[in-house]
Computed example of a mutant assay.
Amino acid sequence: MRKCRFFCSMNMKKLLLIVLGISLLCLVVYKVKPVKHTVTALVTEPKFINEDSLTIVSRVNVPVGYERIEYPDGSFEEYLRNYKLKPYGSKIINYDGTEYFWQYGHIGILEIPVPENGLQQCADALIRIRSEYLWENDRKEEIGFNFTSGHHCAWKQYAEGYRPKIDGNKVSFHKIALPDDSKANFYRYLNLVYTYAGTLSLYHELPRVENAKDLKLGDMLIKGGSPGHIVMICDEAVNSDGEKVYLLFQGNTPAQNIHLVKNLEEPSMSPWYTLEKDRVIPVSNYTFQSSKFVRFK
């Protein structure tokens, strides 16, 4: 009996050592990617980053030999470039107040609220930024987006009291509410758009940019679908040979802070990107397998 207990005890110790070894191996494998990106971030970020700055244009310096492309004051391009940022090091927060699990892919958080309803995801975030620009520049009549069904939903119509009646892919609009052109009603309108529009509707609705050399501030890299993804160019610079580099920001799923992304594939250039049509382009924690570009009208 003693021998039996001795061998049983030995076998149990071996089993525990094996389990411990496997657990440690899993921990190491799980931690490799975040550690790698943390080290990369520490090494590369100071090259172009001004940590004390609170706008996109002042947060990121251009590479040597490049200069920013100028746009008129009041343009959408200048609006994006001068968008306000939270203090450097701010974390990405989800709509429910929790921290997003991946904090290694950004160098700035835009000063724009995240609704608690969880609707403001990747395409929605860019729809909001475009809509707020038009609102603030007294171009409200231009605010309008297609639902995935193809039906157009305009802010002007919504403000007059028209609401959609949706039956599958059939959509009709009926005047059932009192006119209301308030900012609060504007955000109710955006929530409606978030619900029935997305990357797929934007991909089919918006003009394509077929030649990557024609890309400019405000254009978007898009994969239309369910799921799909979309990011927006928020700054650009060019060198004497006409070669361009770009900064990108994105919303995400779950709904969360819009953030200025690093270039994890080319850390020596991060956060600047070079963009080409039909190319594989990794952006933070998403990879566009065949890059396509669209532009707001």
Score class of each variant (00 low, 15 high):
263 N>W: 03
249 F>Y: 03
18 I>K: 13
265 E>S: 15
66 Y>S: 04
192 L>E: 05
115 P>G: 04
281 I>H: 05
278 D>L: 12
25 L>K: 06
63 P>G: 08
17 L>Q: 09
194 Y>M: 01
106 H>I: 03
291 S>Q: 11
197 A>Y: 00
104 Y>I: 03
2 R>G: 14
227 P>Y: 03
160 E>N: 07
88 Y>P: 00
175 K>I: 11
164 P>F: 09
179 P>G: 08
43 V>P: 11
265 E>A: 15
10 M>E: 08
263 N>F: 02
229 H>N: 02
132 E>Q: 12
31 K>I: 05
222 I>C: 09
129 I>D: 04
207 P>D: 11
19 V>N: 01
276 E>P: 08
150 G>Y: 01
98 T>G: 10
176 I>N: 09
67 E>T: 14
287 T>D: 11
212 A>I: 10
116 E>R: 13
113 P>C: 11
62 V>Q: 02
11 N>P: 00
34 P>K: 05
131 S>K: 03
134 L>W: 01
61 N>E: 10
163 R>D: 06
183 K>T: 08
38 T>R: 14
17 L>I: 02
72 P>A: 06
204 H>M: 09
275 L>T: 00
133 Y>M: 06
288 F>R: 04
201 S>W: 03
223 K>T: 03
150 G>C: 12
242 G>N: 11
4 C>W: 15
95 Y>F: 12
166 I>K: 05
215 L>E: 03
142 E>H: 04
245 V>N: 10
92 I>E: 01
155 W>A: 01
185 N>L: 10
136 E>L: 11
136 E>C: 09
156 K>P: 00
206 L>H: 06
90 S>D: 01
81 R>G: 04
119 L>A: 12
167 D>I: 07
139 R>I: 04
200 L>D: 09
127 I>N: 04
112 I>K: 12
268 S>E: 13
153 C>I: 09
2 R>M: 14
66 Y>T: 02
98 T>E: 09
104 Y>A: 07
252 N>K: 13
228 G>W: 08
275 L>F: 04
119 L>P: 06
197 A>I: 00
25 L>T: 06
207 P>M: 09
150 G>N: 07
237 A>W: 08
209 V>W: 08
95 Y>W: 08
50 N>T: 13
150 G>W: 05
78 E>T: 10
39 V>F: 15
30 Y>D: 02
187 Y>P: 10
91 K>F: 11
56 I>T: 01
141 E>P: 00
108 G>C: 05
44 T>S: 15
124 D>P: 07
166 I>D: 05
278 D>K: 13
218 G>H: 06
210 E>R: 13
240 S>C: 12
42 L>K: 14
27 L>H: 01
51 E>C: 12
245 V>A: 10
114 V>L: 02
129 I>T: 06
192 L>Q: 06
190 L>A: 00
38 T>N: 09
66 Y>L: 02
